Every structure is written in structure tokens, then in C-alpha cells.
Simulated scan of single mutants.
Amino acid sequence: MKTKTLKINDFRKEFDKFLRDHLERLMVCSSFSSIINYTPLTGGKRLRPYLIALFSQAIGLPSELYMKLGVAVELFHSGSLIHDDLPAIDNDDFRRGKPSLHKAFDEASAILAGDFLMLYPVKVLQELTINEHLKFLLINEWIRTALSIIEGEYLDVTYEPSSNTKDVNRIHRLKTAELFGFCFSSPFICADRMEEAKKMKETGLRFGHIFQVLDDIKDKLQPIEILGKTPGKDEKLNRPSILRFMSPEEALNTSEKDFKTLLENIEYPEVCEGLKKLWKLIVKA
């Protein structure tokens, strides 16, 4: 019997409540709690937790498990966005259509909140109710992923425009695609399906590359009202972008072909259906 595909809007409502409840239980002082909560609760499409849920439902993982996995990933992602917006990095005053954390509060608070949110996920993963050996493998993969992302951020801010796409692709793999690789593979690690985990990690990396290309296109073409942050920043800051080597139209066409090929590696119809709908959402956003 075919499993019903999880709809992202339905998931987002459920996940936002789960995330809010989780944040309310953090054992930190109330003043710091409001700062920590600011970025995670200012919206967002929840794409990464949704991807975890899609695969988890397809292989029968319990909702409590995949929702906590989603919380870990979303909090880390929020912390990385806080750091991205800081004056020393992207220097952006807006995120998701609202003042960035360092503008809503102050720069020191933003640094510390970002630190907290990027470290805290290990605690979430430690508390998962799975076999201890699997937990060890999952946390090991998470640490490797998190360190890769930070290295990618460094390479992003120190990038010097080159005449080939190799450097750009490497930075995008580390900075963006690695987290998607974790989203695709982590449910399979939790289910002790390691061969599938390896395969889905590579598929997730490919999805991450596609996502970054679409993000490059949006940064160049969309206004702040839609983008939710200052448009054209990447080009002004000489950040790596595939659009240095092809037009937005060429990049979009290539991404669409890559996405269709990517779906061939996924054997779960409900996941493919969810990804197709997600593709439309990302392209139109």
C-alpha cells in the first residue's frame, strides 16, 4: 500500500510547535533564552527537518525520533545564519524579512547565541532513544558534518574569484550540501541501514548543490520583499557563485536536469513526490 506523502505545510505547523516546546525547556536564564529563540522562531521553510521527516516516514521511524533530529539540524542552521549575518561576515541587517539577531539585540549576544545553537545539537542527538552504537555513528557523522560546514564558511568568506568552477563547487559542498547530506542519510543511520545511508548521503550532497545554485539565482534576481534578506550581497562581497560561469537561465536548466536525475536514485515514491513539490516551492520562492 502506498504511503501518503507528507505535506510540507502540514509538517511545518507540527514542527514549529515541537521546536517551540523544545526551546521553552532549555535550562538557560530567561534573558538569554529570548535571544536564543529569536532566529529559530522567526519563520523559515523548515526544509531540512522536512527532508528528515520524509525519509523517516518512508522507512518507519517514530515521529519523536525524526522530530528531534529535525530540531538538531534546524537549531544548527539557525546558529549558522546568525553568524552569517554578523558585520564581520555578510553584514546583513535582515533575515527572513525581520531584523537580524545582532540588529534586534546586539553583536555580542548574536555571537553567543550562534555559538550556543551550533553546539547544542550534540546534546539533542545524545538524548535520542536509539541503540548506543548507532548513536555513536550518528554523532560522529554529525560532528564531521558540522566541522565541514564551518570550514566551508571560512572558504566562502576568503574566496578569491577564479576561472573555474572547482573551487566554487568545493565551497558549496562544504558550506551547504553537507547539511543536506546529513538530512538524507541520518534516518538510515538511526535505522541501522548503513548502505542506504551512504547512498542517500551522496544523493543529499547532490541535492545540496542544486539548492545552492537556486539560492545563487534568487540572491541575484529577487527583491528583499521576497528574499527576506539584502539581495545581491554575494556578488558585492565577491562570494563564490555558479553565476560567475553561467547565466541564471543556464543554471536553472542545469539544476532541473540534475534534479530529475537525482530522483532516479531514490526508491521511495512518497519521498520522490515530496521532493518534486519541494522543488516547485524552492524555485517559486
Rank of each mutant, 00 (worst) to 15 (best):
E235A: 14
M200G: 01
D10Q: 14
I171P: 00
W279G: 00
W279S: 01
G204E: 05
N265M: 03
K201R: 15
L65V: 14
R173Q: 13
W142R: 07
L179M: 12
L81Q: 05
G114K: 04
L227T: 10
E264F: 09
P248S: 12
E64P: 02
G44E: 03
I111Y: 10
K218A: 15
L214K: 02
G232V: 10
F105G: 00
L134W: 06
S63M: 01
K123D: 14
F55W: 11
P99C: 10
R48S: 08
K135E: 09
Q222V: 06
F259G: 02
I35P: 00
K98D: 00
K233P: 05
L75Y: 06
G79T: 06
F105Q: 01
L69R: 01
L26Q: 06
E250H: 11
E256A: 14
V168G: 03
Q57F: 07
R48E: 01
K260W: 03
Y268L: 13
I52A: 06
A197P: 04
G232W: 08
D219M: 06
T158P: 00
L147P: 01
L262T: 09
T3K: 14
V168Y: 04
F105K: 04
Y50F: 15
E151T: 12
D167N: 12
G228S: 03
I149A: 00
D106G: 04
E267Y: 09
V28Y: 09
P240M: 11
E141H: 12
R144S: 14
I210M: 13
D93H: 15
G79Y: 10
G181M: 07
L51A: 05
G152L: 06
M200S: 01
G181K: 03
L19N: 00
D93T: 15
G204L: 02
P99K: 09
L262E: 03
G114F: 02
P231I: 10
I150D: 02
I242G: 00
I266K: 08
G97L: 09
V73F: 00
A58Q: 06
L117R: 01
K277W: 06
S162D: 08
L117D: 00
S78T: 10
K123A: 14
K4C: 02
G152R: 07
V213R: 11
S80F: 06
K284D: 11
K276D: 10
R239L: 15
I217Y: 04
G274C: 11
E256L: 14
